[in-house]
Design a protein around this nucleic acid. Structure first.
Lengths: 212, 212
DNA sequence: ATAGAACCGTACCGTACGGTACGCGTTCAA
DNA sequence: TTGAACGCGTACCGTACGGTACGGTTCTAT
């Protein structure tokens, strides 16, 4: 069940291939062909197959490699006060929105959804593991620290996290995945700061401790 | 730009073809082939092409036809009081969650996302139009009626609607689209009622008027 | 220097599938 | 009765693409 998230570093040559694959994915959507990757990376298809097994292996490696580049906020939990907690949470919201609205994330999520639609759930699991669950794992301790400091109030940190996710992401991700022109044109990225603040305010309104 | 949502009724024979297409989509994911649809519907490919033009046309017709079957809550806005408003909003949350977690919706959303990944945005727009925007169009007037009755407080009904969406859907939709086994196993549908109540409570906590 | 591995480029194969053509049965109207 | 339209089943075509094979070239290690 556990997905083997290889932390193995790829050689520069391999990274060139992965870069080619990722770029082609972003440019051409799901129209990624092995021939195109080989041409873009100036390598032979034979080598591609040798290193990544098959097309799915290449996609998985690409997704994992890209996911490893996303850096979650590092939060210092010592001396947690209201201001620090709020900043941490805002920072999580900011990263979440920034990632989710990025061209790369949209592309990889679309690819993973497509794969899931074909009974191949590996890619979907990898994306889940590296986006939702990655954030969840890092945010939960913060929330619980906030609760311990009487700055937050909730029973289930899982539920608190999921509400946070909803407040931050709302319908943005699904609309982007479905190619909503209106939203894209509205220049979501320019509004991230305002949305981060609103979502954080709402989160504290729902889960803030008595001192809040 | 406007998508032509044909309200034209399909003949029973055509509906049989659409049913076949929809069933195959749900069963086999995106592995929908014209040959399979023809065989399932006991018709010839030639007829299929005659009625629907090409594969995309068949998919579009299928999506539109299915979307037309989803019934939004009908709300009586006369004599709006706190209790009626709350019930209306709960009902919207219930429908939203029920639809989003249904096998058919998941399949169609996956199909639309896949299409969007291929620069073909029509399907994505149709799904957006018939899910998110359909709910939005019907919920907004309720929210505004609530505001007029001093039961709700907000400046932008658009923002209020989107927050509502986030509170209700949270990470459920994206996790289902990505095939999250844990969530599927958790039997989301059994928890819908509790989630509806929680989301509505939270919504009123954020947007409830002073009398709330 | 040289054997051998690694790897590039390209040609090739098999298959799956979208789309078309056609033969034949069935229905229905004149 | 007949003929025309409709539509089913099937065979067929072209193409795109995943995957493999192979000849030639560059790199590496002894």
């Amino acid at each position: 069940m556990t997905i083997k998230v290889n932390e193995e570093t790829f050689t520069p040559r391999q990274q060139a291939m992965l870069t080619a694959a990722l770029d082609l994915l972003v440019e051409n959507g799901d129209g990624l062909t092995m021939t195109a990757v080989a041409r873009r990376a100036s390598c032979s298809k034979e080598t591609l197959y040798k290193w990544f097994g098959d097309r799915d292996g290449l996609l998985m490696a690409t997704v994992q490699w890209q996911a490893a580049k996303v850096r979650m906020p590092q939060v210092d939990q010592t001396g947690l006060n209201a201001r620090a907690l709020r900043q941490s949470i805002e920072q999580f919201a900011r990263v979440l929105l920034t990632v989710i609205t990025s061209e790369v994330s949209i592309t990889l999520n679309r690819t993973a959804v497509t794969h899931t639609a074909q009974e191949k759930d590996r890619l979907g699991n990898i994306v889940l593991e590296n986006s939702l669950l990655a954030i969840c794992r890092r945010l939960k301790p913060i929330l619980e620290a906030g609760r311990n400091a009487r700055l937050l109030r909730f029973t289930s940190s899982e539920d608190a996290y999921r509400t946070f996710f909803g407040l931050v992401v709302r319908d943005v991700q699904i609309r982007l995945l479905l190619g909503d022109k209106a939203l894209i044109q509205a220049n979501v990225e320019a509004n991230i700061e305002a949305d981060v603040k609103t979502a954080t305010d709402q989160f504290f309104a729902l889960y803030g401790g008595k001192s809040q």
